[in-house]
Design a protein around this nucleic acid. Structure first.
Lengths: 242, 242
DNA sequence: TTAAGTATACTTGTATACAAGTATTATAGC
DNA sequence: GCTATAATACTTGTATACAAGTATACTTAA
């Protein structure tokens, strides 16, 4: 896998990833970004040629993306489903669902260590903002929520998170890259929201948690159209050659 | 894949499945049933030899089972995690979570067709009981809940269901097979509960839905230890030869 | 021109070959 | 007996080969 094209997914995050994973990460980004449009039919052979790898890792990647619901495997090939606004809202439905569930569990346990870990991650986010590093910010943002979700040790809630994470990560990456350029002022509010979230966890204040969670999501949702509009501009920069 | 050993998963359900899927279904059953014990390390080569297929479908199956959290892929091999009582409770946590979410959506839409479909499925369940067909009963039982979940057309809730379904199906299959033998009287209550559920959907009665859902789950949960006890007896019938 | 049938090119599914890395086991030295 | 080192056997990851099925396009006949 040594294409000359630019990668959408941060390569330094793939240091120990297999070829199959690399392909999955990159394909996922291109689908989410709309570079590969919905309805496109991907063939294993073509992808293998494009990425200059064999069909084995390609098959692996396609099965992964299929389980994430952004492509659908058919006998005739893999149909790209993409990520419309509807799906993004659905992702946040699920996040709201599981994070609310998690919070109910958190109320019953000691959250000192978790609060500390979250504070650390939040500091990292601030540094990322300071140095204008959208990717690092996204990484820490996701880490923040992941830490909360994993903290209750619920393997099936974690499983849901794991299935959701890659697509959400891709979306957040693209969204943050745009906002770092165009909506820098957003980040004050994001940081404040996360501080509120930590407070809610420390004080085990259910209402505060719901409030910060909803504001966090509303914040993102309101910006979805902006992202798609921004996507439109970048269309055609890279095109699926088939 | 033409082992002489008995299959745990109903073969007629696999008529159009690929070899990889067949292996996944069978392996999953053996892990859930405890025939392959937790901690066992599965090697692709051994499995390929056991099932008399190549490594390709085996790899596919292992990745599937890994995404279901019943094995963990490592460099040294696939570690069997199995399904303890904790995990089963967690599965029902998630079912409760998503079915409650689904019901909130159902309240807002027309449920006439759904109620009809559920009634049909329930009739099927009754027939299965009459003819002592545990597998068919399990199939319809799962179909019942799947119909409800899919009815709201929420792709990410459906995704969660799809990830949950195989393991749950396996567990329900084993559970029902035992109860058909030993706890035949249970099924009156199960049918009644499902009738209650349909009523709740028809009348959009939130409390009634929660009630039937909880009773349904409590019913199953109370029987978990019985299943495991029953499992113990069947241990050693087939052993992982390694 | 239209319809039917056949040939062809392309699809996935499975098997096999090869490479690189890791753990274990055996052997040599003390 | 014990430690260190080397050989060996086994692991996954990737590439390739082959088979079976499917859609498409072309050719032939009416």
């Amino acid at each position: 896998m040594s294409e000359s094209k630019d990668y959408l997914y941060p390569q330094k995050w793939l240091s120990k990833a297999s070829t199959g994973d690399r392909v999955a990460y990159e394909l996922r980004m291109r689908i989410i970004a709309g570079i590969i449009e919905s309805g496109t039919i991907l063939s294993e052979n073509k992808l293998a040629a494009d990425f200059e790898v064999s069909r084995s890792p390609i098959r692996e990647a396609l099965r992964t993306l299929s389980s994430e619901n952004i492509i659908r495997l058919e006998k005739t090939g893999a149909v790209v489903l993409g990520l419309s606004e509807k799906e993004i809202e659905e992702i946040y439905d699920v996040r709201l669902l599981i994070e609310t569930f998690v919070f109910e569990r958190l109320i019953k346990i000691d959250t000192t260590n978790l609060a500390m870990e979250l504070s650390k991650t939040l500091e990292m986010m601030k540094v990322a903002i300071k140095y204008n590093d959208a990717d690092e910010f996204s990484y820490q943002d996701i880490l923040f929520h992941e830490a909360i979700i994993r903290s209750i040790g619920h393997s099936y809630i974690t499983m849901i998170w794991n299935n959701l994470k890659p697509v959400m990560e891709g979306f957040i990456l693209l969204s943050m890259r745009m906002r770092f350029k165009e909506k820098y002022e957003d980040f004050d509010r994001i940081i404040k929201n996360h501080e509120l979230y930590i407070d809610a966890i420390k004080t085990k204040d259910r209402k505060l948690m719901i409030k910060s969670l909803h504001e966090n999501f509303d914040d993102v949702q309101g910006k979805v159209e902006d992202l798609w509009r921004s996507q439109m501009l970048s269309k055609g920069v890279e095109a699926q050659d088939d």
